[in-house]
């Protein structure tokens, strides 16, 4: 007799997926996106499975996106929210997740403000762990939805110039985007103030410039990243006005990109800071589509992790 045994898969960083698997998830997401346009936006793929949303850091879009994705696959969804500050004093992360798992959860989606926390949880539990963002470390589902959005419009990754502009240092999105996009042959160029570009970033197979026009020139994709005001308090740049003068993605600058450039942003946007408001609403902007695609990609990923495509048989 053969025993059917599911291989437990985690998604902590983009390195956990092969290029083929990334393409599979993107391809599958297309059909899930179609589901989202139906009157009855629900398929039974995850019926009987329990997805736990463990959010130790506040989140609106990622949490809603995962929740909708899981519900549209007919999974039972449980929410757990706690602030990281209360975690310092209360029950340990290990005990929290073990307790929840003891109530028979299958997939954990986790957001945490400290890097490495998802990896830690993966050590303690038997189910799948899906990283919904851990500090400045990794945010693979954002990268997958960014890649889906790019692929849908451009039909390729190879040789696309993708300019990512803003606070590179504190961005988990950018780390996952770099991992995913460079592997697929895209040319990623990073741009931001020198204090918001981490040291050694040039070793990540990317171009680096402090000149926003040079970054945008002939780009196929321009992505803005959120500038957090607290970084100014930390002395990393002198003022929001100076930041936007040097780095804001505005109409004249965007003109230097390819005519069919895609403007992306993982949200939430600071209008008038990293993006000129008019640009955010321009024809180039696919920011709203990114959000829609996020649900489809997360459905595809949950389906994939629950064994939809990867059921392994061991003899």
């Amino acid at each position: 007799m053969t025993v059917k045994e599911k291989i437990i898969r985690h998604l902590i960083t983009m390195d956990d997926l092969t290029n083929e698997e990334i393409m599979t998830i993107i391809e599958e997401a297309k059909s899930f996106k179609e589901v989202l346009t139906r009157d009855i936006k629900k398929v039974p793929a995850l019926r009987g499975k329990t997805v736990v949303l463990l959010f130790f850091e506040s989140s609106t879009r990622t949490k809603i996106s995962f929740e909708l994705a899981a519900k549209r696959l007919s999974a039972d969804v449980v929410n757990f929210s706690a602030s990281t500050s209360s975690l310092k004093k209360s029950e340990s992360l290990k005990d929290t997740v073990r307790t929840i798992e003891a109530m028979a959860a299958d997939i954990f989606v986790m957001r945490h403000s400290y890097p490495g926390s998802t990896q830690l949880v993966a050590k303690y539990i038997k189910g799948s762990v899906l990283n919904g963002g851990d500090g400045a470390h990794s945010h693979p589902t954002q990268a997958l939805l960014d890649m889906y959005t790019i692929y849908e419009k451009k039909k390729r990754f190879k040789d696309l110039k993708v300019a990512i502009i803003g606070d590179i240092k504190h961005s988990r999105v950018v780390r996952s985007d770099i991992e995913g996009l460079t592997r697929m042959g895209a040319n990623v160029v990073l741009c931001g103030p020198s204090t918001l570009l981490p040291r050694y970033i040039e070793q990540f197979n990317v171009g680096v410039t402090y000149n926003v026009e040079e970054a945008i020139k002939d780009a196929d994709v321009v992505m803005g990243l959120r500038i957090q005001f607290e970084r100014q308090e930390q002395g990393l740049f002198p003022s929001v006005l100076e930041y936007s003068q040097f780095f804001q993605i505005n109409r004249p600058r965007l003109k230097k990109a390819k005519p069919d450039v895609l403007l992306m942003h993982p949200g939430p946007i600071n209008r008038g800071v990293e993006l000129e408001s008019e640009v955010a609403d321009s024809v180039y902007s696919v920011i709203d589509e990114q959000v829609t695609n996020g649900v489809a990609v997360r459905m595809s990923l949950l389906y994939f992790l629950a064994g939809g495509k990867d059921e392994q048989v061991t003899d």
């Binding site: 890097p115 400045a136 470390h137 990794s138 988990r172 981490p198 040291r199 050694y200 990540f204």
Partner: peptide, 13 residues
């Protein structure tokens, strides 16, 4: 240590 690894892991260096 602030270096390639801290940048990769997103940990403050």
């Amino acid at each position: 240590n602030e270096g390639y690894i801290s940048t990769k892991l997103g940990l403050p260096g």
